[in-house]
Simulated scan of single mutants.
Amino acid sequence: MSSAKKQTQLRLEPEVLAAGKDAAAARGLDFNQYVQRLITEDTTGARAAGMAAAQRLLDTHGDFLQSLEDELDAQHRPAVRKSRGAAA
């Protein structure tokens, strides 16, 4: 039984290949699945639709999301120690 998939060859700069493999692993995909997903999303318009939806979310709720991020940052910021003046 033969597979319907076709094999191709890519030539990538080493740092591009490493970044792609890292991105694939972060998503739980092997490199082939990652490349296939990127091509599919790009050629079907899915990526553009997702980016447009994300932009609408930011346009509508960006200020609220920024305030939440600022609150979380403040909670995790180390306390500032007040220095005492040098004794005379």
Rank of each mutant, 00 (worst) to 15 (best):
E13S: 01
Q33I: 05
A52E: 15
T40N: 07
I39Y: 08
Q9C: 04
Q75V: 00
A4D: 13
A18I: 08
A4V: 06
A54W: 04
G62R: 02
L58F: 09
K21Y: 00
S83P: 03
V35F: 06
K5W: 09
R84M: 12
T44M: 14
R37V: 14
T43A: 10
R27H: 08
H76A: 03
A49Y: 02
A46E: 14
G85P: 09
A52F: 03
G50A: 14
A4Q: 06
L65A: 12
A48T: 10
L29P: 00
S3G: 06
Y34A: 15
A53Q: 15
V35G: 05
D30W: 03
D63K: 10
A54L: 13
A74T: 10
R56D: 08
L72H: 04
A24E: 09
A25Q: 09
A26F: 04
A23G: 03
S2P: 04
S83W: 08
Q55G: 02
Q33M: 12
A4W: 01
A54E: 05
D30Y: 09
A18C: 03
D22P: 01
T44W: 12
T40C: 07
L57N: 01
H76K: 04
G62A: 07
G28D: 11
V80A: 14
D59P: 00
S67W: 04
T40L: 12
Q66V: 08
T44E: 15
Q36Y: 04
E41I: 01
R81Q: 08
G45I: 13
N32V: 11
Q36W: 02
R27Y: 02
R84G: 10
M1R: 04
M51N: 06
Q55D: 10
L10C: 06
T44Y: 11
S83G: 06
A49W: 01
L17T: 01
A54V: 00
G20R: 06
E69V: 03
A88D: 05
A49I: 07
I39W: 11
R56A: 09
A46N: 11
M51K: 08
N32M: 08
D22K: 06
Q7G: 03
R84E: 15
S83T: 08
D22N: 07
Q9T: 15
G50M: 10
M51S: 06
T44F: 13
E69Y: 02
A86E: 13
H76E: 11
E13P: 00
G62I: 02
V35A: 14
A54N: 07
H76C: 03
I39E: 01
R27W: 01
A25F: 05
S3V: 03
L68T: 00
T60V: 02
T44K: 09
S3D: 13
D42M: 14
D30G: 04
T44G: 09
S83E: 10
D73V: 15
D30N: 15
L68F: 01
G50F: 07
F64H: 05
L68H: 02
A53R: 14
A87V: 12
H76Y: 05
T40R: 12
T40P: 00
A74P: 00
A54C: 02
D59V: 01
L10E: 07
G85V: 10
R84V: 11
R37F: 11
A46I: 12
Y34Q: 15
L17D: 05
R27S: 08
